[in-house]
Design a protein around this nucleic acid. Structure first.
Length: 350
DNA sequence: AACTCGGGGCT
DNA sequence: AGCCCAGAGTT
């Protein structure tokens, strides 16, 4: 099968069926870049709510480079994979120094920027600069493996390289950005995962080997992920004069540099919780158990229990910061994992 | 090659 | 209860 045949039908289908997305208007290199970083492992619907707000706060590369880290993380709060935000800013600073504040229009130079790998470099190069470079993400891999009935493991990096190599000669010189987006759009809307693909409305059905075989659901092949580990934690809702205790997480690792409710490993009894509070230099007056909550990360499960703690007025404890409801909402980037316990405090404020 | 890194929606 | 998502960086 000569895969050159798919290019025109695909481009035509995309022109007629593409979604109206914020980053598809005024596609400057900066806007394309920010959207592609936000879209890494993140659904379009989730990004919509962040994109315009982020661009308002950081409208261009100099503004992004100058943003205080606290504001940067607050803008990213709830979006996940927070190293994306830090790498985005690190790259912005690098662009200021090395390229005079302009995104480099060269694939290899884009690749050297932190947070930009082969997919994102290809996406920015093709969509923002019209360069004939493939952009192979999970959607494209799924589409291509079905199209060619290829049983290769898509978790294997070699499979991605081979797919890029196979797509390279197909890149239409004047429409490379549209071609890449069309493959992704097809994967998102028609050649969908975890469900029967909508082959009856697929512009590539007649070229698809898996469809000819009736084996669409066998693709793509992917190695199973190892099971998540479970971590039991106890969260403390420490209150003093209407203010809540917060703690900054370490600068590396899970939820790096974000704020958290003070917590301890294990499921603490009331007596142990009292000891834990005292270890923070505070004196509890009354404790009330909070309903348990579960938060699932990619590779960890937090099983959390909590204690709401009223404190005797005492000099402030080291390593803790105190915030009222308004300061909490405005100032401190806080991961979603703590939302159930936070609700308890915010409701109590009313 | 295997792990780390978030959060949410769909089946 | 899994699966996957416009992946990249580290070990």
């Amino acid at each position: 099968m000569n895969m050159n045949q798919i290019v025109q039908p695909l481009l035509q289908w995309f022109e007629q069926n593409k979604r109206d997305l914020p980053w598809r208007h005024n596609c400057t290199p900066y806007r394309v870049w920010v959207s592609e970083i936000m879209l890494q492992q993140t659904r379009v619907e989730a990004v919509k709510g962040y994109f315009s707000h982020f661009l308002q706060a950081a409208p261009d590369i100099p503004a992004l480079a100058a943003l205080p880290e606290e504001k940067l993380l607050k803008l990213w709060e709830g979006l996940g994979y927070y190293s994306r935000a830090r790498n985005l800013q690190k790259a912005a600073k690098q662009i200021m120094e090395q390229y005079g504040g302009n995104m480099p229009a060269v694939y290899e130079q884009l690749l050297t920027l932190p947070g930009i790998g082969s997919y994102t470099a290809g996406a920015v190069a093709s969509i923002a600069f019209g360069l004939p470079v493939p952009a192979v993400d999970g959607n494209v891999l799924r589409v291509w493996m079905r199209l060619t009935a290829d049983h290769a493991d898509i978790a294997d990096l070699r499979t991605k390289r081979q797919t890029e190599a196979a797509l390279q000669p197909l890149m239409p010189a004047e429409h490379s950005g549209a071609f890449n987006q069309a493959l992704m759009e097809l994967g998102a809307m028609v050649c969908v995962p975890n469900a029967a693909p909508k082959c009856s409305s697929c512009p590539l059905a007649e070229f698809c080997e898996a469809h000819r075989q009736g084996t669409e659901l066998q693709f793509p092949v992917k190695k199973p992920k190892p099971p998540r580990r479970v971590e039991q934690r106890t969260i403390l809702l420490l209150e003093q004069e209407g203010r809540l205790a917060l703690r900054r997480r370490p600068p590396k690792g899970l939820l790096a540099s974000l704020w958290e409710l003070p917590g301890f490993g294990g499921a603490l009894t009331q007596e142990q919780a009292v000891e834990a509070v005292r270890s923070l230099g505070l004196e509890p007056v009354r404790l009330k158990p909070l309903p348990p909550a579960k938060h699932i990360f990619t590779h960890i499960e937090w099983h959390m229990t909590g204690w709401r703690v009223w404190l005797a007025p005492l000099p402030e404890a080291q390593k803790l910061t105190w915030a009222d409801a308004d300061e909490l909402r405005a100032g401190y980037p806080l991961p979603s994992a703590f939302r159930p316990f936070l609700r308890e405090f915010l409701q109590a404020e009313k």
